[in-house]
Simulated scan of single mutants.
Amino acid sequence: MHTMWKGSISFGLVNIPIKLHAATENKDIKLRQLHKECQSPIEYKKRCPVCEREVERDEIVKAYEYAKNKFVVLDDEDLKALKKEQEDKAVEILDFVKLEEIDPIYFENSYFISPNDGGSKAYGLLRQALEDTGKIGIAKIIIRSKEQLAIVRVYENTLLMETIHFPDEVRNVQDVPNVPENTELSKKELTTAISLIDQLTAEFDPDKYQDEYRTALMELIEAKRNNEEITTAKVKPKQANVTDLMEALEKSLESTKGNKKKTTKRKTVSKTKKKTS
């Protein structure tokens, strides 16, 4: 399993060298966009609308737009120094809480935690302590240049870190439009709804749920592929440095004939003038 982050996690005076591994993967089927006429992939280029030309990577800088068309430019050196300063800090567990106290709206990405060299005993200690207390840890970590709030919990005998949103990243529910305050419901309607919920209640089995759209899309792709309903992108023709020899000769010959006719005409006119004079 690919290691995406190395560092350490601590609680109190206990320090655990760890590695993070992505616990989930995105299995969305990525579809490319082709030019309908020639079936070639569409290119997306970075272009400056003022200079009216494509810009190279080394010509691009990062900036924060604090007002319309007004920016604060941030140098790469500034960002690297800030990132290094934060990454050098160990992941410290700040508090221990109960999992049910955190609403699922806060959860973001999941990462498996494995012990790095020399960290197995401390890893086992934290895992056992969390299991015995029924608590989870609240910590902070820098991942991909962004400070993240995270929880540390036990998942099937493995420590798991889940990044969670900061409170100001969760939008105010009061801003949701058209939510009714109170709805008048008859006792029969409510009883029927509760009965339906009871009938559909079951233990959660993740294997029961599949991405039916993704499966159907892959079946469609494979069917087209097996029936050879495929296309190959056209290769952009290279500009030849050498002009077709026969074409060049023919054009040269025509040009020479034209020049010869003009020269003959001039000589004829010149002779006629001499005779007249």
Rank of each mutant, 00 (worst) to 15 (best):
I221H: 03
L245T: 03
Q148Y: 13
K45R: 09
S145D: 12
H165W: 13
E162C: 03
E181I: 14
V170E: 14
Q174T: 12
S110W: 15
K121D: 15
T191V: 09
K62C: 05
I93G: 06
K98G: 03
L160H: 08
E219L: 11
S255C: 01
T133E: 04
M246C: 02
I141D: 14
E77R: 06
T163P: 01
V235R: 11
L190N: 07
E65T: 00
K257Q: 09
K68F: 11
V50S: 01
V73M: 03
A216R: 05
E212P: 04
V152M: 08
Q33R: 04
L220T: 11
K68Q: 10
E108M: 13
K46S: 06
K70I: 13
Q33V: 14
L79A: 08
E189C: 02
V61R: 04
E229Y: 02
L99H: 01
V179N: 13
I18D: 00
R214G: 10
K274Q: 15
Q239E: 01
T133R: 09
L99D: 02
V170I: 08
K188I: 03
S114D: 05
D198I: 09
E131N: 04
L160F: 04
V55S: 04
H35C: 12
S186I: 02
C38P: 00
I197Y: 12
Q174C: 10
S270D: 13
V97T: 08
T133M: 12
E43W: 14
N227S: 07
E100D: 03
V72C: 13
M218K: 06
L159P: 01
G134A: 08
I18V: 12
E54A: 04
A233F: 10
P237R: 12
E219N: 15
V91Q: 02
V55C: 03
S110Q: 05
K121L: 15
N259P: 08
